[in-house]
Each structure stands twice: as C-alpha cells, then as structure tokens.
Design a protein around this nucleic acid. Structure first.
Lengths: 118, 118
DNA sequence: ATGGAATGCTATGTATTTAATAGCAACAAC
DNA sequence: GTTGTTGCTATTAAATACATAGCATTCCAT
C-alpha cells in the first residue's frame, strides 16, 4: 500500500517534511477530503454508508483512505462504524469555508464559460 | 490529458457536480494545493522558479496542474511568469489556516508515535 | 442450527495518473 | 554562433485508482 505521509518525515515531493506538505500529501489524494467531509457532515457511518455518501468511491480506495486517515489521527474506528476524531473535526471546520466559497467560484466560472462559448 | 473538473458538470466521483466536489476533485490531485501555496507565498514565478519552490515536482505534472488551475480561473499566465488570480488568492487565504493547524497536528502525531514506538 | 441480510474488507484485472529523465524550440546576451 | 534561460513535450516506467466479484463474519429470525 501507499506510504502514509507523516509530518517530520520525508513526504512525497518534499525532503523537509514540513507539516503543511505532509498534510497536502495526505489530502492531495483521491477522495481524501471527500471522506472527511462526508464523515463530518453525516456523523458516524458504517463503511457502506460512507461508501454511499461518497456516491461512487470503490471499496478498495475507501479502505485505503480510511487507513491513512486513521494513521493520521483524523478518523477512528469504533464498533458500529467510523467516526471523525477531534483533529478530523478541526480539519473539517477549516475546510468548511471552501464549501461556501466554491459556490461563488462555480458561478464565476459559469459566467466565464458563457462568455467564451456563446 | 486528464479531464478538468468544473463545477456544474459531472466530476470524477460525483454525478451531481456540486461545487465542493468539483473543487475537491481539482485540489485532490498531486501538487495542486502545493502549487497554489507556492505561487501565493512567493509571488509571481516563472515556470522554473515554481518548479524550484515545489522542490521536486516534475515539469510534466507542473504543466498539467498549471493548465488545470488556469482553466479553473485560479492562476494566470503573464509575460514573465505565472500569477495567482483573485480567486487563487482567495483560495490560498482559505487554505492558509491549514498551515498553522498542521503544526499542532504534527506535534500531536509525533507524541502519539512516541507512545506507540518507544 | 439454517437461511438470509448486512457488515468490513480483499482480490483481480484494467485504466488512469504521476514520476523521472532527456531534450527541443524560442529567445537573449555576448 | 555559442551559451544560457525559458517554457514545455516525449517517453518509459511505476504508482495509484477504478470496477467488479466475492469472501468471512456477525446478526437475527425461524
């Protein structure tokens, strides 16, 4: 399986292991942010519920992401399903503003493509 | 080349094209956030300067990310180099808190691995 | 205890993405 | 015309993700 990024250790693309680079390595993987998002929005979920919330993630990838997020201390597994830990929620709260911002961004992009295509 | 995610259109892993999912698709690619980070921290950069700031990104990937970020309206190319556009800076400002947070996260993880490995 | 249903997850084969490296075409200075 | 910088492409290999099937375990009703 993929090497799991850890701050302080060399990370993909960074010898320094600066924390933000480790974080970007962790989050810059398919579905990583989506899983945190889904987990924090919907509360504790079973594996299959989480899979449903992510619409079309494959079990292999979900499982890999969950392992990574657990090793990163963001997610925990309890009897009954997966839960975001304190750090996971904090991260979600930092990510949350992106939700609102992305709507404006989408609108601006839509306008732009109006102009360029019609 | 990879399909570029656009809000409002089906995105990898999401039929709905909800803006946040499009954004996650865009940012959930290797180096995407790192490039925005580097560009906004260091100001306008030439291709090769950007490459240097990212330590070890390959030109092919950098070029791909830059194309995507330009299409997403986050980055612009001017004579003399690449610049973050307004949306790019806004996104950077939303991402910036992750920098501080990641240090605490790193510290907590380090403690945890102390406990588990020694 | 047997049948079903849900659970978490692995296995497999294929496609996509990224990496690593070399190198080209355009331009500028000398 | 040589040397250096620029932005970028080509190529080949490795890593990652996808899609699908399916297994082992647990639960519950019968």
């Amino acid at each position: 399986m993929a090497k799991i990024p850890r701050p302080g250790k060399p990370v993909r693309g960074s010898k320094s292991g600066v924390p933000i680079m480790a974080l970007f390595d962790l989050l810059g993987r398919r579905w990583a942010m989506g899983v945190i998002w889904a987990l924090c929005k919907n509360g504790p979920c079973t594996f299959r519920e989480l899979q449903a919330h992510c619409e079309s993630i494959s079990p292999a990838v979900l499982n890999t992401r969950l392992k990574e997020l657990r090793q990163a201390g963001l997610v925990d597994r309890k009897p009954g399903g997966y839960v975001a830990k304190a750090d996971g929620y904090q991260l979600y709260e930092l990510l949350a503003p992106l939700g609102a911002w992305s709507k404006g961004w989408a609108a601006r992009l839509a306008k732009k493509s109006d102009r360029s295509s019609g």
